[in-house]
Amino acid sequence: MKPAADRPKAAPLRIERGRRWDHLDLLARIDASGSISAAAQAMGMSYKAAWQAVEAMNNLSEQPLVERQAGGQRGCGTRLTEYGRRVVAACQGLEQERQRVLAQLDRVSGDFDAYYRVIRRFDLQTSARNQFLGRVQSVKKGAVNAEVLLDIGGGDALVAIITNDSVDHLALGPGVEAYALVKAPWVILTTDDGLRTSARNRLCGVVVRCQEGAVNAEVVVELPGGKLVTAIVTNDSVRSLGLEAGARACALIKASHIILAVAP
């Protein structure tokens, strides 16, 4: 940990500064109520917005912060994982102590640096519905493009094809932490595990939410490691594939449809 004198001044710890809702507050309310619905209602936000916030946080964390459990008003409740409780406890302690001198932060939480980095990841704002944080496993350069293998945890990995210039600009190499961004309409869903396609990435799991709109539906697939993939498909596709909560599905993503980013 850096000496207190070398640290920048701490800003008020609001996870979503400039937005209406605070992700830290949402996590704390889920922990207290055991229900995303109750937490969302208490914060004046929609149930869907709360779930989207939770899914984004789970995807940007090395370990899931929120997990489903049997029981509850809707047939299943939600609760914070032990890791999620440690993150909330560490940040709540810092919030309570932020008016004190920075030299006292070590007394507040010895894990400040590690947990603060977790919270800062939630500040990433993009239009991509799917955001995964991982570490580069390998980079294979070709004449123009490069293949980048990104470990996103939970036994899952993504292959991205980007230009060599982009690899150099982002300084990508083994061990580098990077984000993979994928727009929901770019995700193809299938219920056939053995289907052969040209898509380099296949992420299989269980459908946990399927919400139909006027024409299209939003389908969320939970992977074995706790990460979530969101796809936008037509309502006809949902019905023909039999997509519903509890059904097994695989998300197919072309390597060229993955955008890589690194924190400044």
Results as ranks from 00 to 15, higher is better:
168 D>H: 03
170 L>N: 02
212 E>C: 13
149 L>V: 14
223 L>F: 05
140 K>A: 15
203 L>V: 10
175 G>H: 01
211 Q>W: 01
112 F>A: 13
122 F>I: 08
189 L>M: 09
174 P>M: 10
132 F>D: 01
197 T>H: 07
112 F>R: 13
221 V>D: 01
172 L>Q: 08
140 K>N: 12
154 G>D: 09
226 G>C: 09
207 V>W: 06
170 L>T: 01
208 V>P: 00
184 A>T: 08
155 G>T: 11
193 D>K: 14
218 E>P: 00
155 G>C: 10
132 F>Y: 15
206 V>Y: 00
215 V>Y: 09
197 T>A: 11
177 E>Y: 05
130 N>M: 09
139 V>G: 07
117 R>P: 00
158 L>Y: 03
142 G>Y: 10
161 I>A: 02
187 V>D: 02
169 H>S: 08
201 N>D: 09
170 L>S: 01
120 R>I: 04
162 I>L: 11
212 E>K: 15
187 V>L: 02
161 I>L: 14
126 T>H: 03
184 A>F: 10
134 G>N: 05
185 P>R: 05
136 V>K: 05
155 G>I: 08
174 P>V: 09
184 A>Q: 10
164 N>T: 06
152 I>N: 03
204 C>F: 03
185 P>I: 04
208 V>Q: 04
210 C>P: 01
166 S>Y: 01
131 Q>T: 13
160 A>Q: 03
124 L>F: 06
178 A>I: 07
144 V>D: 05
153 G>Y: 04
147 E>T: 13
122 F>N: 08
165 D>T: 04
169 H>T: 11
118 V>D: 12
174 P>S: 08
204 C>W: 10
213 G>M: 05
149 L>F: 03
200 R>I: 08
201 N>F: 03
136 V>Q: 07
133 L>Y: 15
132 F>G: 03
218 E>W: 01
168 D>C: 00
173 G>L: 04
153 G>M: 06
201 N>Q: 07
209 R>P: 00
171 A>R: 13
193 D>H: 13
172 L>M: 06
163 T>P: 05
183 K>N: 12
191 T>I: 10
124 L>C: 04
115 Y>R: 12
115 Y>Q: 12
223 L>Q: 08
145 N>V: 12
131 Q>K: 13
126 T>S: 14
148 V>Y: 01
218 E>L: 08
132 F>Q: 02
154 G>A: 07
